[in-house]
C-alpha cells in the first residue's frame, strides 16, 4: 500500500515538474524528468517483483520443471518491460520512428529467445510421431 502511495506521489511530482519545465528555455529537461521518474518508480517496484519471481522459481523447482524455460519467460518479461519503457520515452520526445525501431528490436530479441523452446517442442512432436 505505502509502496503504491509513494509511487503515486512521485509520479504527481514528476508530472507537475514536467509541465513546469516544458515552459522553460530547456524543454529537454522535461523529458529527463520523465526518464528519471520512470526509473525511480520501477526501481521501487523491482524488489517486490524479484520476490514474486523467486517464488515462481521455487514453484518450478517443486514441479521439477526445467529451469531454462522459466528463465526464458523471465527474460521475455524483462525485454518487454524495458523496451516498452524506452519506446514510451522516445514517443514522448516526439521520435515515433525510434520508438517503433526499439519495439521491433525487442520483438526480434523475444523471437530469438523463444526459438529454442519452439525447437524442443517440435522435436518432441517428431519423437511422438515416429
Amino acid at each position: 500500500m505505502e509502496q503504491v502511495m509513494s509511487v503515486i506521489i512521485l509520479a504527481f511530482i514528476g508530472m507537475i515538474a514536467g509541465i513546469f519545465i516544458n515552459e522553460s528555455k530547456l524543454p529537454v529537461l522535461g523529458l529527463m524528468v520523465v526518464l528519471a521518474c520512470g526509473s525511480l518508480i520501477f526501481l521501487k517496484v523491482l524488489p517486490q517483483l524479484a520476490e514474486v519471481l523467486r517464488v515462481f522459481t521455487r514453484l518450478a523447482e517443486y514441479a521439477s520443471l526445467n529451469q531454462a524455460y522459466l528463465f526464458t519467460i523471465f527474460k521475455v518479461l524483462g525485454i518487454a518491460y524495458i523496451s516498452e519503457f524506452a519506446a514510451q520515452i522516445c514517443r514522448d520526445g516526439g521520435q515515433n520512428a525510434l520508438a517503433m525501431k526499439i519495439e521491433m528490436a525487442a520483438k526480434i530479441g523475444v523471437m530469438a529467445l523463444s526459438i529454442p523452446i519452439m525447437m524442443s517442442v517440435l522435436e518432441s512432436i517428431l519423437q511422438i510421431l515416429h
Partner: peptide
Amino acid sequence: DIKECGTMIDGEIIFFLTGLAIAVT
C-alpha cells in the same frame, strides 16, 4: 510482508531538475 524497499522517495532529482530549469531560463 513488504518491508524491503522502505518508504523513502528518492524524488530530489526531480526538484533538482526543476531548479536547474529555472536557473538556466
